[in-house]
Amino acid sequence: MPLEKISQVRGQAVNVPGDDIDTDRIIPARFMKCVTFDGLGEYLFHDVRYDSKGQPRDHSLNDPRFANASIMLSGTNFGCGSSREHAPQSLYRAGFRAIIAGNFAEIFFGNSINLGMPCVSISEDQRKQLAGIIEESPELDITINLLDSKIHASDHQFAFKLKDGARESLINGKWDPIDELLGKGEAIEEVAKLLIYK
């Protein structure tokens, strides 16, 4: 099945400040008891969004101004911690289609690209500026353009970093590798035969 060619992501953005936001923060482990990923979006950032009585706290994800956001802005080392795809899945299922951060933990990054959810990196200065713009005009649609590798937010532009391979696979609609992997059946068998272990 051909995949969507993702050359840009456009939408409202929300700032979730903080460095080292780990996968347990994105989706607490107790919500991972599931046999499908459906419904995970509901628990996104649960423990920072709600207090122990389930009452919403002061958090940008609870702010009605950002309720329709599909792009998340955050700090450095976003998605560190576990390899569980539950974290990017919960972001995706909560409606997020791209993440902007200082940088990303490797497994999280790979998992997100596999979902067709670009993760782009910008500097601290750029993040501050962008956060200011979002705060000032929450309704503003910003565009993450993979073709010119820039974030466009009204008159501002921020050059971002995204690993070449990832960028190309998104643009070419090859972000999910399964078809290409499946296509190499014979070559796979050749390698398997040479191994001393079964």
């Binding site: 569980r84 979902l115 796979i188």
Partner: peptide, 16 residues
């Protein structure tokens, strides 16, 4: 460690 989509890739092709 890998994510779940990669678990799928592994089950289907034994490759990543």
């Amino acid at each position: 460690g890998v994510g779940t989509s990669q678990v799928r890739d592994l089950l289907a092709t034994q490759t990543l």
